[in-house]
């Protein structure tokens, strides 16, 4: 039983990683007042660029670089539409998601001709698992061995990076000048403007960070979790990250917990396939799969707590006399 639990938590960590990257990406964007339903598109774009880069150059790191570049470029398109041209944030996000969904397949077919996939990655062109020090030595120690060697050790570097990004984000958001201004601009851009700070510049920078994190999420999917790009491989992770962001009420640590919860539900869903629980019968996998979305809707409706987002979110900033 304990071992099963460890294995499920292990799976949770792997599944949660892209959610954590993407939800934190959304956190930077939305705390700065920019609604980002384009997380999905950025993840997918990065997944493709990273896999393509890794396949061509034979290095996961070069792939990662391309992934991040692709994702940041998309974030800049979003910024250009929402910040510079006061466009609708949702429409812009939908546009980005749609363009990427089509473009990745088009380019992939054209460049690699493998039915929309990239070549299978191996060796240096993938992020492989890292064995933590003494993991082998401790493997046989009861309890600790399982926790350390199975659960904590043996993930790839991006998994550790994702978890490390949570305290880093906490620190950036709450302890730095950039974080203070970013939070302020999402709450009351007029206050920021009258304090002599450029609203647009802060929002663009927030989107760059958002792009980088989505880039990591995408690269993780195609060059670490899987060995190559598949059509539509983001499979709604961007939207689920958005749900986790809302569920975590736009705060780093609760967002992490939401991602872990959603990741855990995913791991449970896979485990529960075909399992008959005495007295209840077979729990349909789909019932577990939809829980993140159902929970988020309930939260938004105010049935479980209250999700209050940044006040100025989604509204273009127009300089006007107050």
């Amino acid at each position: 039983m304990f071992e099963t639990l460890i294995l499920m938590l292990d799976a949770t960590m792997r599944v949660s990683t892209p959610l954590i990257f993407a939800a934190l990406a959304g956190l930077y964007s939305e705390r700065a007042g920019i609604v980002d339903i384009g997380l999905e598109g950025k993840i997918l774009g990065s997944a493709f660029a990273a896999a393509a880069g890794a396949a061509v150059f034979g290095s996961a790191w070069i792939g990662l670089f391309f992934g991040i570049m692709a994702s940041v470029s998309l974030a800049m398109v979003h910024g250009f539409a929402c910040i510079t041209h006061r466009g609708d944030h949702i429409v812009s996000g939908v546009a980005i998601n749609t363009i990427v969904a089509g473009l990745t397949v088009t380019l992939s077919m054209n460049w690699f001709g493998m039915g929309g996939q990239t070549p299978t990655l191996s060796g240096d062109s993938r992020f492989l698992s890292v064995t933590l020090p003494f993991a082998d030595a401790l493997a046989n120690v009861p309890v600790i061995g399982l926790i350390y060697s199975e659960l904590l050790s043996g993930h790839n570097i991006l998994v550790y990076l994702a978890f490390a990004m949570v305290p880093v984000t906490y620190w950036v958001i709450y302890k730095t000048r950039f974080g203070l201004r970013l939070r302020a601009v999402g709450e009351n851009p007029h206050a920021v403007d009258t304090a002599g700070i450029s609203v647009a510049f802060i929002r663009y920078r927030a989107l760059i960070v958002c792009g980088i994190l989505c880039g990591l999420a995408g690269a993780y999917l195609s060059t670490a979790h899987n060995a190559g790009f598949l059509k539509d491989m983001s499979a709604g992770k961007g939207y689920m990250a958005l749900a986790a962001l809302i569920f975590g009420k736009w705060r780093p640590v609760p967002v992490l917990l939401a991602c872990l919860l959603f990741g855990f539900l995913d791991a449970v869903a896979i485990r529960m396939q075909g399992v008959v629980i005495p007295g209840i019968g077979e729990v349909p996998v789909q019932a577990i799969e939809v829980l993140p979305y159902v929970l988020t809707v309930l939260l938004l409706a105010g049935f479980i707590g209250k999700a209050i987002g940044p006040k100025a979110i989604g509204r273009p900033y127009v300089k006007e006399r107050a």
Partner: peptide, 11 residues
């Protein structure tokens, strides 16, 4: 301190 933070870190 918003806009007059006196450095990249808030502390």
């Amino acid at each position: 301190i918003l806009g007059a933070e006196g450095g990249a870190l808030l502390k």
